[in-house]
Simulated scan of single mutants.
Amino acid sequence: MQLNIKGIDTRYVLDNEGGGPWLTFIHQLAGDLSVWDQMAGYFRDGYTVLRYDLRGHGHTAVSPDDFTIDDLADDLAELLGKLGAPSTHVVGLSIGGMVAQKFAINHADKVDTLTVVGAPAFIREDARPTFMQRVASVRENGTNSIVEPTLERWLTAEFRKAHPEVVEQIGETIAHTPAEGFARAALAISRFDARDGLASIGKRTLVVAGEQDNGTPHAESRAIADLVPGAQFELLKAAHLSPVEASQRFCALLDAFLRAAA
């Protein structure tokens, strides 16, 4: 389904068999809402599950202008408003975790709980050139050129060997991400910093990191839990995409967290 959010045609999928509280999942850079298929299948009986594609990803149109992570958080607020959601549990992965942090800071009245997965509290100054290099490379060579190195960062060698069909699907999603959609989102990531607002988050918060996540070392994720009052931190045996690689453990962890917040 599609809705126009700030002039951008935005794809979303709503699973509301359970008719329960809203639960929103936000995907990673060069991903789309399909990364949450398994989670949606598990939670849809008890929740109204929302998944959507960020600007320039999946079947959501590319933004004509540069934007910030705050803008992406505002997109979510408008999407929820148009769908009639009073508030939601929000779960974000990678850039989705950055959007989730800003959403919890800037739209606190719309947040029931916050779950941040594989994301830092800010992008270090020395990491910004890496994002700029990826932007330049993708603009010149397309997203197909980053499939293999991205998969190597996102998933451990053991998982890639054992689950080639999952790896293939994720690789295809990366390759089909519009180059400019990737570039504008990567630029937004390079400027991300939520540290000033994290202490203001008053909702129950879960922070999840992968032990073998080299792209976002777990110490950078732990910094979020250190700044948000009372936040819970969990480390899973996975690389960057822990909801995929450690799906059963992640699912059980999120389920228990949401039930405790009910």
Rank of each mutant, 00 (worst) to 15 (best):
T115F: 09
T115I: 06
V117P: 04
G118Q: 06
A119C: 06
P120E: 01
F122Y: 11
F122D: 04
F122P: 00
I123P: 10
R124P: 09
E125Y: 01
E125H: 10
D126F: 00
D126T: 13
D126Q: 13
A127G: 06
R128H: 00
P129C: 01
M132S: 10
M132R: 07
Q133D: 08
R134L: 07
V135K: 01
V135T: 02
V138H: 00
V138A: 03
R139P: 01
R139L: 07
R139T: 03
R139C: 00
E140S: 12
E140R: 14
E140L: 06
E140G: 01
N141T: 11
N141K: 11
N141E: 05
N141C: 02
G142N: 07
G142C: 11
T143F: 04
T143V: 01
N144Q: 12
S145V: 04
I146F: 00
T150G: 15
L151F: 11
L151S: 13
E152L: 15
L155S: 09
L155T: 09
T156A: 05
R160Q: 10
R160K: 05
K161V: 12
A162D: 13
H163I: 00
P164H: 04
E165Y: 05
E165V: 10
V166K: 12
V166F: 00
V167F: 00
V167D: 06
Q169M: 13
Q169S: 13
G171S: 12
E172T: 13
A175V: 01
A175R: 09
H176A: 15
H176S: 14
H176R: 12
H176D: 15
P178Q: 04
E180F: 03
A183L: 07
R184K: 14
A185D: 09
A186Q: 06
A186D: 11
L187C: 11
A188N: 01
A188F: 02
A188I: 01
I189C: 09
S190A: 15
S190H: 05
R191Q: 15
R191Y: 09
D193K: 06
A194W: 03
A194F: 08
R195I: 08
D196I: 02
D196Y: 02
D196M: 05
L198R: 11
L198I: 02
L198C: 06
A199E: 09
S200F: 00
S200G: 03
I201G: 12
G202D: 14
G202S: 14
T205Y: 04
T205R: 05
L206D: 11
L206C: 14
V207K: 03
V207C: 12
V208M: 15
V208H: 01
V208D: 13
A209R: 08
G210Y: 08
E211P: 04
E211A: 15
Q212G: 11
D213K: 05
D213V: 07
D213P: 06
D213A: 04
D213G: 04
G215S: 12
G215W: 07
G215C: 14
T216W: 02
T216G: 08
P217I: 07
P217Y: 07
H218Q: 09
A219L: 14
E220P: 02
A223D: 15
A223W: 06
A223K: 15
A223M: 15
I224D: 01
A225T: 05
A225H: 05
